[in-house]
Simulated assay, not measured.
Amino acid sequence: MSASFAPALAAANDAAGQQNHPASTLYVVATPIGNLADISLRALHVLQKVDVIACEDTRHTQQMLRAYGIDRPGSQLLAVHQHNEAEAAQTVITRLAQGERVAYVSDAGTPAISDPGARLAAAVRQAGLRVLPLPGASSVITVLSASGMTGENGFVFTGFLPSKAGERQHAVQALVQESRAVVLLEAPHRIEALAQALGVLGERRITVGRELTKQFEQIETVAAQDLAAWLAEKPERQRGEFALVVHDSPVAETSGEGLRVLQLLLPELPLKTAVKLAAEITGESKNVLYDQALMLKNA
């Protein structure tokens, strides 16, 4: 064990040892996305206390546990990943029904956010058993907090876009119509293709978070049309895991034509149908037309 984490384990037991940790419960535990010091005291305590740890990769989790000085035999680690999540969930449910405590961790960050865990949590809840989340590190919130995005229009989490070029291009075209900020995730071997696709967003700003919380962390904001060139300037910019924020775009006012079409369609059609047709007829943003339609309905 690294000597630096010995006081952390003691503090974890002091801080969380007297708290209630019910049996027959699945503990969804957030773990660091890079920097080991980002673990919570509560997570350290629960990872020592539970009967079994379900994890995306048993080898990765074992390495993390040993870094903290937590010694769990391999028999207490259960693989639950995207290829076996449905079957493994039944094993977890059986153990929970026997009164055991089970923790679930993904390889990094908060489980079930573009990682396995969502199906497991859903199956446990459907079985009438408790799911207890332990909050912590998340690349989504981390990159948002450093992006300078005001958040006035909110944000959308999209995660990984499709890997096939045609499907990815279709998804990017949908972003053109989205006025809110959008958080994307990407792997190093696909970041160049994503940057090329995002170029259609023109001057819309994109904050790139690379290797967040790690030694070579980099956070930069560039125009979408310049992202591919920025990545190509230095080879290291294409290395590591990526979290990106496509900043929100200024909300445009509807033109007189958009308003006129809405006024004609709303009395005859459901609101969403009227907005969809008005967008197709005028070429204006669905989000802008939707807001305008709500105002007309309320009026």
Results as ranks from 00 to 15, higher is better:
residue 4 S to D: 14
residue 5 F to N: 05
residue 11 A to M: 10
residue 23 A to E: 11
residue 23 A to H: 11
residue 25 T to M: 05
residue 25 T to N: 07
residue 25 T to R: 03
residue 32 P to T: 08
residue 33 I to T: 11
residue 34 G to P: 01
residue 35 N to R: 05
residue 35 N to C: 01
residue 37 A to S: 14
residue 43 A to D: 08
residue 46 V to S: 01
residue 52 V to W: 08
residue 52 V to L: 15
residue 53 I to G: 04
residue 55 C to V: 09
residue 55 C to I: 02
residue 56 E to H: 10
residue 63 Q to C: 02
residue 70 I to W: 05
residue 72 R to M: 05
residue 72 R to Q: 09
residue 74 G to K: 06
residue 75 S to W: 00
residue 75 S to L: 01
residue 76 Q to P: 00
residue 77 L to A: 01
residue 79 A to R: 06
residue 82 Q to I: 03
residue 83 H to D: 11
residue 85 E to Q: 07
residue 85 E to G: 04
residue 85 E to Y: 07
residue 85 E to N: 04
residue 87 E to G: 04
residue 88 A to I: 07
residue 90 Q to S: 11
residue 91 T to N: 11
residue 92 V to Y: 09
residue 92 V to P: 06
residue 101 R to Y: 04
residue 102 V to P: 02
residue 103 A to F: 02
residue 104 Y to S: 07
residue 109 G to D: 09
residue 110 T to W: 06
residue 113 I to C: 12
residue 120 L to D: 08
residue 121 A to Q: 00
residue 122 A to N: 12
residue 128 G to R: 01
residue 129 L to I: 09
residue 130 R to A: 15
residue 136 G to E: 05
residue 138 S to A: 14
residue 140 V to K: 13
residue 142 T to H: 12
residue 147 S to G: 08
residue 149 M to N: 12
residue 151 G to R: 01
residue 155 F to L: 08
residue 160 F to P: 02
residue 163 S to H: 13
residue 169 Q to F: 01
residue 170 H to G: 01
residue 170 H to A: 15
residue 176 V to Y: 05
residue 181 A to V: 03
residue 186 E to L: 11
residue 193 A to I: 01
residue 193 A to M: 09
residue 195 A to L: 07
residue 196 Q to F: 04
residue 199 G to Q: 14
residue 199 G to L: 01
residue 200 V to D: 12
residue 202 G to P: 02
residue 202 G to Y: 05
residue 204 R to V: 04
residue 207 T to G: 13
residue 209 G to C: 04
residue 211 E to M: 02
residue 220 E to C: 04
residue 221 T to G: 09
residue 225 Q to R: 11
residue 226 D to R: 10
residue 226 D to N: 10
residue 232 A to K: 05
residue 238 Q to I: 03
residue 241 E to I: 00
residue 243 A to I: 02
residue 247 H to K: 05
residue 250 P to Q: 11
residue 252 A to E: 15
residue 257 E to D: 14
residue 259 L to D: 14
residue 264 L to R: 12
residue 265 L to Y: 12
residue 268 E to G: 00
residue 270 P to D: 14
residue 279 A to T: 03
residue 279 A to V: 03
residue 280 E to P: 00
residue 283 G to N: 08
residue 283 G to Q: 12
residue 285 S to W: 03
residue 289 L to Q: 07
residue 293 A to M: 02
residue 295 M to I: 10
